[in-house]
């Protein structure tokens, strides 16, 4: 892989007592697609918002570094972050119905995005917007620029959002479950489109999702989050075929298509812990069939080649 575009080191984003993100480290290479996987509340979205500097209060980054372009951007000023957002880094949200401002025309919302970072005329900005819409496969972009968001379907809106994210050809895009709210057929189209576009521009992509099927199709690498930490990461095919962490294994087992027809759907017993009261050791231990006394102590990071995990009792028969 090429040079590292973004490196997150031991990121800690807390909401008061709640440690939503507690020691997350990963890096993304240029052009790489990283799938950040986890269930609701595992801290994957907060990780995304931490990177672009838009964590909602009372959340704050209490520790760690986010190295982008050779600098730790957790120390950047608000204005420096603003200048990076949209230009060098972009984010796509989950619900395209809510992402675009309902009372502003598409052209207004795209032109302002261009002009926020470049001193260009309205006409030029408009031309850029039109080309971007054409690029993401929106027919007759010139007319569609005049429209309001409610005149688009969900899939088309998400395309508009993607077009806005691509306006300045950012170094990386964080996509926070952008296909979850869409129909399956549209989902497949958007995935294919997204894959094509990031490959064309050599843009890195951090794809946040709970959907392993999506990750297996799209991502180069996968990072599995549980209770604010990454518990396992590695090349996507390896991890999905031979999970090391019992949680990853449980996650894979819970995919309905892997279950036998007529059989009870498999699930991980118990509930994800509250991030306000995390145990010192492995957070998954209370739900884990392999857990013992050792798991109550802090778990170090085990690394072997491209694969990393945080489990003192990794699945033995599949040990790398």
């Amino acid at each position: 892989m090429n040079a590292t575009v973004l490196e997150v080191r031991d990121l800690r984003t807390h909401f008061g007592q709640a440690k939503a993100v507690d020691g997350v480290s990963f890096s993304v290479a240029r052009g790489e697609v990283l799938g950040l996987v986890g269930e609701s509340g595992s801290g994957k979205s907060v990780t995304g918002f931490s990177i672009i500097g838009l964590v909602d209060p009372p959340g704050t980054i209490v520790g760690g570094q986010i190295v982008f372009d050779g600098r730790d951007i957790t120390r950047s000023s608000r204005e420096e972050m603003r200048a990076l957002r949209g230009r060098r880094m972009a984010m796509i949200f989950q619900d395209p119905m809510m992402t675009l401002n309902p009372v502003l025309r598409i052209d207004t919302q795209m032109i302002e995005a261009v002009q926020a970072h470049e001193n260009v005329s309205r006409t030029d900005a408009r031309a850029r917007a039109r080309d971007a819409l054409g690029m993401v496969g929106i027919p007759s972009p010139d007319e569609r620029l005049q429209a309001y968001p409610h005149q688009f379907s969900g899939g088309m809106r998400q395309r508009v959002v993607i077009a806005i994210a691509l306006l300045h050809q950012p170094d990386f895009i964080i996509a926070d479950e952008p296909t979850t709210a869409l129909d399956v057929t549209i989902q497949a189209q958007i995935l294919a489109e997204m894959q094509k576009l990031v490959a064309q521009n050599n843009t890195s992509l951090i794809w946040i999702t709970h959907d392993l099927a999506v990750v297996s199709r799209l991502a180069d690498r996968i990072a599995v989050m549980y209770a604010g930490r990454i518990v396992e990461s590695g090349p996507v095919s390896d991890v999905l075929a031979r999970p090391l962490h019992p949680y990853t294994a449980g996650l894979i087992d819970s995919v309905p298509s892997r279950n036998q027809r007529g059989e009870r759907l498999r699930q991980i017993p118990g509930m994800a812990p509250s991030v306000a009261r995390l145990p010192t050791g492995c957070a998954f231990a209370p739900r884990c069939p392999r857990a013992d006394a050792v798991c109550a102590q802090a778990v170090p990071l085990f690394a072997a080649g491209p694969r990393e995990h945080r489990c003192v009792h990794p699945l033995p028969e599949l040990r790398v």
């Binding site: 838009l54 957002r85 949209g86 230009r87 989950q94 992402t99 675009l100 401002n101 926020a116 970072h117």
Partner: peptide, 16 residues
């Protein structure tokens, strides 16, 4: 609402 966050994610100035 998300669109406010998205507006910020576009790098718009807070005044806008």
């Amino acid at each position: 609402l998300d669109f406010v966050k998205f507006a910020r994610a576009k790098g718009l100035k807070e005044t806008r």
